[in-house]
């Protein structure tokens, strides 16, 4: 029997462990939260290092969609009001990739909750905001990688930005803002859901949001009430703003939402994040309390 080895060794510890007292005051609390956020982000980065195949597979899907859209449909379709469908649909693809990110966030958060990792975090003196904030940083890094690879493929199939690098970067910034909002929504849903198997429900919700938007279709071709829904869809705001900034065709419908796409592309993500980040953190703190 090897049981004695365990008892011979110091399980408690030989040296006293300096237990840091919880932070007092807002500045200390902020430093504490920043450190925890970075630790949680580091955990996600370590996951990627362990599973490089998953990261590649995650990037492959949007790439395939971009190439398919570019080669299969690109040559055949014209946008009403003029313009190449390939150029029209490319910003839609970018934005849809950001929207679909909600599934990754949801799955990661719901899995941690199911496995009891979330409870372990909650019983520790770490900052309650760090779980969501760390997830946000990691997911934005992943989204940024997708926003490098997808446009490169876009260039390959003939898509271009026409109005300079500055405006193109602004468009990518808006896309990341949408992804950030999706982190907040995904984290909240992941904490509310009974488990990772509810991912199906999120997937079912994500599809109508993508199709009832200007990402793939031209809202002007839809019946009036559907067109209104499509134009006020947060996804459409980002897509239309992206088209304006990249210099891609924007078939104007004259509606307020379409005319103020840039404003809405900032306002929607800010609003969603402002609502769902606090909700997610509150839910995390009070998980079945």
């Amino acid at each position: 029997m090897t049981t004695t080895t365990l008892e011979d060794r110091p399980v408690t510890t030989t040296t006293a462990i300096p237990v840091p007292p919880p932070p007092a005051g807002p500045a200390a609390r902020l430093r504490w939260a920043a450190a925890d956020t970075w630790t949680i982000t580091g955990r996600a980065l370590a996951h990627w290092a362990r599973q490089p195949g998953q990261v590649v597979a995650g990037l492959l899907f949007p790439v395939l969609v971009v190439l398919m859209m570019g080669y299969l449909f690109g040559g055949q379709t014209e946008v009403p009001g003029g313009g190449d469908y390939r150029a029209y649909v490319m910003p839609g693809m970018f934005a849809m990739a950001m929207l679909f990110g909600v599934e990754n966030t949801f799955a990661a958060v719901a899995t941690d909750k199911r496995r009891g990792v979330t409870d372990r975090f909650r019983a520790m003196p770490m900052a309650p905001s760090a779980m969501v904030a760390g997830r946000a940083v990691a997911d934005l890094l992943q989204a940024a990688a997708a926003l490098v690879v997808m446009p490169l493929c876009g260039l390959l199939v003939g898509w271009r930005w026409h109005d300079g690098v500055g405006r193109a970067l602004a468009a990518f910034g808006l896309l990341l803002a949408l992804r950030l909002a999706m982190v907040a929504v995904g984290a909240y849903l992941g904490l509310v859901a009974s488990g990772p198997e509810s991912l199906m429900v999120v997937q079912i919700l994500v599809w109508p949001v993508s199709f009832l938007s200007s990402a793939l279709v031209v809202p002007a071709t839809l019946p009036g009430w559907l067109a209104a829904i499509a134009e006020w869809n947060p996804l459409s705001a980002t897509v239309t703003a992206g088209r304006e900034l990249f210099g891609d065709p924007v078939p104007g419908s004259g509606s307020w939402a379409a005319e103020h796409a840039l404003t809405l592309a900032v306002a929607w993500p800010v609003l969603l994040a402002a609502v769902f980040f606090p909700l997610a953190v509150r839910r995390y703190r009070n998980l079945d309390r």
């Binding site: 462990i17 300096p18 237990v19 840091p20 504490w32 450190a35 925890d36 630790t39 580091g42 955990r43 372990r120 975090f121 520790m124 003196p125 770490m126």
Partner: peptide, 8 residues
């Protein structure tokens, strides 16, 4: 990871 979250 857990040690860092305890702020060691």
């Amino acid at each position: 990871l857990f040690g860092r979250l305890f702020h060691l």
